[in-house]
């Protein structure tokens, strides 16, 4: 089952003399459960591609289908709702909400996805346990190490069982061992949830987990053999 399809997507950012063609006829397909790397240097268009794929940016041309929905046909609110239900995010910074505990940060996605009415607490606890950080449940983000924060972010990205997780340099701020551990945790937890993962990165530690590798350069996407 295809969960994400980009068909000849272009995106121009800025206007006039400042216009930059961030994506050029980018096409890709990601199926359920796939772990895909999107590799490229800084400024190559990785984050723009994630933004377009997640419906955060509107493409200048081309079509994006996310979990069977053409994003161009959806209103802002519908795109937001689709994102809340079907998409998970792991950012370079964990971006956990400082006011909430670890458990509440994880449950937040359930709240956004379905109001958090059903089994949100137990699902959060199960996922935290699977990631080996259940003992951090009542702590605040400021009390966590970088690796712990990213594991919590992985839990938040998967707790609502999304169809796809977009991860932007999830190991970029982590040292060698911690980075590997977070990469493994993301891959294993996503596989267990059946979620596809599209990781924008230039971190080779993620390569062993990838089913496929895509390269992006100057906005053009190509399969890496």
């Amino acid at each position: 089952m295809i969960v994400l399809e980009l068909d000849r997507v272009s995106k121009v950012r800025g206007s006039g003399r400042h216009a930059v063609r961030a994506l050029r006829d980018a096409s890709l397909v990601i199926r359920r459960g796939e772990f895909v790397l999107l590799e490229g240097p800084s400024g190559s268009g990785k984050t723009t591609l994630l933004g377009v794929a997640a419906g955060l940016l509107t493409p200048t041309s081309g079509n994006v289908r996310l979990v069977g929905h053409s994003l161009a046909a959806l209103a802002d609110s519908a795109r937001r709702a689709l994102r809340a239900r079907q998409v998970g995010f792991v950012f370079q910074r964990s971006n956990l909400l400082a006011r909430l505990t670890v458990r509440e940060n994880v449950m937040l996605m359930r709240t956004l996805a379905d109001g958090g009415r059903t089994s949100a607490r137990s699902d959060a606890a199960r996922l935290l346990a699977a990631l080996g950080i259940e003992w951090l449940a009542d702590r605040r983000p400021r009390e966590l190490s970088g690796g712990e924060e990213q594991r919590v972010a992985v839990a938040r990205a998967l707790v609502h069982r999304p169809a796809i997780v977009f991860a932007d340099e999830p190991t970029g701020n982590l040292d060698g061992a911690t980075g590997r551990a977070v990469a493994a945790a993301l891959a294993e937890a996503a596989a267990e949830c059946g979620a596809a993962v599209l990781v924008a990165t230039h971190d080779p530690r993620l390569v062993p987990y990838a089913a496929r590798r895509l390269g992006i350069d100057d906005g053009c996407v190509a399969e890496v053999s």
Binding site: A54, L56, S77, R80, A81, L82, R83, A84, R85, V87, F89, F91, N95, L97, A98, L108, M109, L112, A113
Partner: peptide, 13 residues
């Protein structure tokens, strides 16, 4: 701002 951007990205209305 940063937290709000995250919430909007995650799909918060």
């Amino acid at each position: 701002r940063a937290e709000i951007a995250v919430l909007l990205a995650l799909g918060s209305p």
